[in-house]
Design a protein around this nucleic acid. Structure first.
Lengths: 249, 249
DNA sequence: CGCATCATTGAAGCCCTTCAAGACTTGTGG
DNA sequence: CCACAAGTCTTGAAGGGCTTCAATGATGCG
């Protein structure tokens, strides 16, 4: 059993930074009491499974992926503690068939019924926090698209690692070690495993990654960001004096 | 002056398919009376420009792009009539610096002030329609990510063209001709212009695209989708008997 | 200890890029 | 109406980054 973050803190931090107000936050956490554990490698959500419930990652790491015709796995995004796995299914029930969520480490998830979600929408600070969460996800996709489209393998891998580090920091996880295998990185960066391996070796020789095997551990964060041309501002939450909390009521 | 769709119909169609109810739709269209025209090649929204207003494309085609360090242009997505250009800025004011919107043809846009937007949120069918629009945009990014990451140039270009055709059809534009230059396609697919040209020539020899120069015109849609492995279901709107319209009230 | 998974290394080859130059189209002004 | 300029499209050739295939070394688990 490997679980890389044991507390409920990340979710708390994330919702706060998305603008959820204390009392609304309490309501949310109250509804998110029921949990499930999933072993590394298993599917959290299978293809075309709507489910009638939203799952939030509490601990561990998961990825959204798609099977290609040749049997390969295309990783579209990673989820870290505090991230929603299938919020989009709640909003667009029939959308996105063919996408599944897989646990990359042992993972713990909270389960929220759709009727609880419906209740959240009546609370302005929660409703806007959920909308923001969706758009933040979109921002991550956009950024990965611009990184994956062009650039060398070195830049792409570096950017991918920077993104994960930054997103984990945003929810209070400051560990320099990422719970990803080289295979995961390859499937996410759109590169072959062989070449990802060689790329990582370059990063190790540059003293950006540690020599530790079976692990991706970032030693020189600044250098990594320089290589990637990474600007993490797309992950920054705005100041939270929301216009809305007053307007809607 | 080239404007490839002159009516306000697409926006109407889009909001309806997103679940906006007739009376709410009327309110929205009422607030979207003010328009601007932009010539081909000009920026609709410059980098880091928040603006205090949301712009909706009524006619023409635009793209969201990012300048790369080498001066190149990375196109992240295209907008077709009915699409929002900067809805995300309304929800996440400080997010996404460095992304601008450019008109690829002469374009017409409606302008909606933030305070009108605030009013929309009080109407459940509009609020959910806007949220859905955000998630649909995210779905488009996700799909492009999986297409751009892997696959040959032929598949990637074919997929890109399929996406644009499908999205335009969804708002009532059935023309087989896409208002994109080969340069646009190259910047969006993450390929060199030279190779996009060769790829298009292959598609022409396969009788998938017409021989017409200075134009991308799809003749054999089915074959194109087969080449792309395209499944447009991610663009489908669910049936619109929304749970919410009853629940929230 | 044996098996499964992941990491590593080498070699051959292809897809795509870059560079460079010419052809075509479009719009503008004389 | 024609000439010119600017932008787009087209074509050829050389080179490089990444892929694929294949095999061996590590690591962890039952």
């Amino acid at each position: 059993m490997r679980v890389d973050a044991g507390t409920g803190l990340p979710l708390d931090l994330k919702l706060k930074s998305l603008g959820a107000q204390p009392d609304d936050l309490a309501v949310f956490l109250q509804a998110a009491q029921r949990c499930v554990s999933v072993p590394a490698g298993a599917d959290v959500i299978r293809e075309a499974e709507a489910g009638g419930q939203v799952k939030v990652l509490l601990a561990g790491t998961t990825c959204a992926y798609k099977r290609r015709e040749d049997g390969g796995r295309s990783i579209l995004s990673f989820q870290h503690p505090g991230d929603f796995c299938n919020l989009h299914h709640y909003v667009l029930p029939d959308a996105e068939p063919g996408i599944a969520i897989q646990a990359l480490t042992d993972a713990t998830l909270a389960i929220i019924d759709y009727r609880d979600m419906d209740g959240f929408l009546a609370r302005p600070s929660l409703a806007s926090a959920l909308w923001r969460a969706s758009l933040l996800e979109a921002a991550v996709y956009r950024e990965r698209l611009s990184s994956t489209g062009r650039g060398t393998a070195l830049e792409r891998v570096a950017h991918l690692l920077c993104e994960q580090l930054a997103r984990r920091e945003a929810v209070g996880i400051h560990a320099p070690r990422l719970p990803l295998s080289q295979i995961d990185v390859a499937d996410a960066a759109g590169l072959s495993v062989v070449h990802v391996n060689r790329t990582i070796q370059v990063l190790r020789k540059l003293n950006v990654l540690s020599r530790a095997r079976q692990a991706i551990e970032v030693v020189d964060r600044e250098h990594l960001e320089r290589i990637a041309g990474f600007d993490g501002s797309y992950l920054n939450m705005p100041n939270l004096v929301s216009r809305w909390s007053v307007q809607i009521e």
